[in-house]
Simulated scan of single mutants.
Amino acid sequence: MTAVLILGGTGWLSGHVARGWIAAGAEVTCLARGGRPAPEGATLVEADRAEPGAYDVVAQRDWDEVVDISSDAGHVASACAALAARAAHWTYVSTLSVYAESDVEGADESAALLEPARPDDEYDYGRAKVAAEASVREALGERAAIVRPGLIVGPGDPSDRFGYWVARFAAAADGPVLVPETQGRSAQVIDVRDLADFVVEVGRHRWTGIANAIGDSVPLGDLLADARAAAGHTGDLRHADDEWLQAHDVRFWMGPRSLPLWLPADMNGFSTRTNAVYRGAGGGLRPLTDTLRDTLADERERGLDRERRSGLTREEELAVIAELP
């Protein structure tokens, strides 16, 4: 039986990966701090990766596959030091945020990276992932796969970005919805279930290399139109350009008072990276309309009017709309 160690396994993406390996018949162990259960069928080893000896229990045996998704470069380095000699194959889930430039369309895995984070630097997500990748490559060499997803979406998304649009269109019903300038803008996402399937397949076949794990680039306007159709919205779309929205404290991409997925015009390379390696290695992509449908069902279950980590509240949105010329 394939022995799989997942460093994590109780969160959103890592939980999907754990369940995927269990479905494939593997013996799955999740190393996590506790507080959340491991998926049914997995063994949970409670450990804090910031503490000495965190890997002592799992370092006592060999593993066919180790999966790590951490964005803490120190945690990744310590895991590699403790477990590299015990792992036949290692999959590290990194991010497209490792790339230094976001203005070149169609860039591939050879694009320049950010400078790796140093231990005493202020935390930077992209630079931390670059440092973590370096630790994996140094420790595992040709036994490692580095998977670089972009925006991960789908049911259960804790970031509240992608789901904002179907939830807002559904909640607005026949009322107005504020939308950003979409001309020349793109979006590029990957369903968490497709990403997890790929991580499992990479481990099963011991694939090595680097892959941008992301869906096809689509015009942002098309994505919003599909979200609107999925939600059955019949109200008006109220458009505003970048300058006007920024002047009214509406933010790009994510977080409070944002219009999620909307990016500055000079960052179009961020959402147009090639996924040829991912596809060539067997990565699948379900139709975006299916992801929107399933995300809407999840948003309805969690509450269309719940407090969100990203987006405008309905009250904020209507106040901004009221100021449109």
Results as ranks from 00 to 15, higher is better:
residue 3 A to D: 15
residue 7 L to Q: 02
residue 8 G to I: 04
residue 8 G to W: 09
residue 10 T to M: 08
residue 11 G to S: 12
residue 12 W to Y: 14
residue 15 G to F: 00
residue 17 V to M: 06
residue 17 V to A: 01
residue 17 V to I: 12
residue 17 V to C: 04
residue 19 R to D: 08
residue 20 G to V: 07
residue 21 W to S: 05
residue 22 I to Y: 03
residue 23 A to V: 11
residue 24 A to T: 14
residue 26 A to N: 05
residue 27 E to M: 07
residue 28 V to L: 07
residue 28 V to A: 02
residue 30 C to K: 05
residue 35 G to H: 11
residue 36 R to E: 13
residue 38 A to F: 09
residue 40 E to A: 15
residue 42 A to K: 11
residue 46 E to Y: 13
residue 52 P to T: 09
residue 53 G to I: 13
residue 55 Y to R: 08
residue 58 V to H: 11
residue 61 R to E: 14
residue 61 R to V: 15
residue 63 W to P: 04
residue 63 W to N: 07
residue 64 D to S: 14
residue 64 D to H: 15
residue 65 E to T: 14
residue 73 A to P: 08
residue 76 V to F: 14
residue 79 A to R: 12
residue 80 C to V: 13
residue 81 A to N: 13
residue 81 A to C: 12
residue 86 R to I: 09
residue 87 A to S: 15
residue 88 A to M: 13
residue 90 W to K: 10
residue 90 W to G: 04
residue 92 Y to Q: 03
residue 93 V to K: 07
residue 95 T to D: 10
residue 96 L to Q: 11
residue 100 A to P: 06
residue 102 S to Q: 15
residue 104 V to K: 08
residue 104 V to N: 00
residue 106 G to M: 13
residue 114 L to S: 01
residue 115 E to D: 14
residue 117 A to E: 01
residue 118 R to P: 04
residue 122 E to C: 06
residue 123 Y to C: 05
residue 126 G to V: 01
residue 129 K to T: 02
residue 131 A to Y: 02
residue 141 G to H: 09
residue 144 A to L: 00
residue 145 A to N: 02
residue 149 P to N: 00
residue 150 G to C: 04
residue 155 P to N: 09
residue 156 G to V: 04
residue 164 Y to C: 02
residue 168 R to G: 01
residue 172 A to H: 06
residue 175 G to L: 09
residue 175 G to C: 08
residue 176 P to V: 00
residue 179 V to Q: 03
residue 179 V to H: 08
residue 181 E to Y: 06
residue 182 T to M: 03
residue 186 S to T: 15
residue 186 S to E: 13
residue 187 A to H: 08
residue 187 A to G: 02
residue 188 Q to R: 14
residue 189 V to G: 09
residue 194 D to I: 04
residue 198 F to L: 11
residue 198 F to Y: 15
residue 200 V to P: 02
residue 200 V to M: 12
residue 202 V to R: 07
residue 205 H to R: 13
residue 205 H to C: 10
residue 207 W to P: 11
residue 207 W to E: 13
residue 211 A to F: 11
residue 211 A to I: 07
residue 214 I to D: 00
residue 214 I to T: 07
residue 215 G to Y: 01
residue 216 D to Q: 11
residue 217 S to C: 04
residue 218 V to T: 07
residue 218 V to R: 07
residue 218 V to G: 04
residue 220 L to E: 06
residue 221 G to M: 01
residue 222 D to Y: 03
residue 226 D to T: 08
residue 227 A to V: 08
residue 231 A to F: 04
residue 231 A to Y: 02
residue 232 G to R: 07
residue 234 T to G: 13
residue 237 L to P: 01
residue 238 R to Y: 04
residue 242 D to V: 09
residue 242 D to T: 15
residue 246 Q to W: 11
residue 246 Q to G: 14
residue 247 A to Y: 03
residue 247 A to E: 13
residue 253 W to E: 12
residue 260 P to F: 00
residue 261 L to R: 01
residue 262 W to K: 04
residue 263 L to M: 14
residue 265 A to E: 15
residue 265 A to M: 11
residue 266 D to M: 06
residue 268 N to D: 14
residue 269 G to I: 03
residue 276 A to Q: 13
residue 280 G to C: 10
residue 291 T to D: 09
residue 291 T to L: 05
residue 292 L to T: 09
residue 293 R to L: 10
residue 299 E to N: 09
residue 302 R to V: 02
residue 305 D to Q: 10
residue 306 R to W: 03
residue 307 E to P: 03
residue 311 G to I: 08
residue 313 T to I: 00
residue 318 L to F: 01
residue 320 V to F: 00
residue 321 I to G: 04
residue 323 E to K: 08
residue 324 L to H: 05
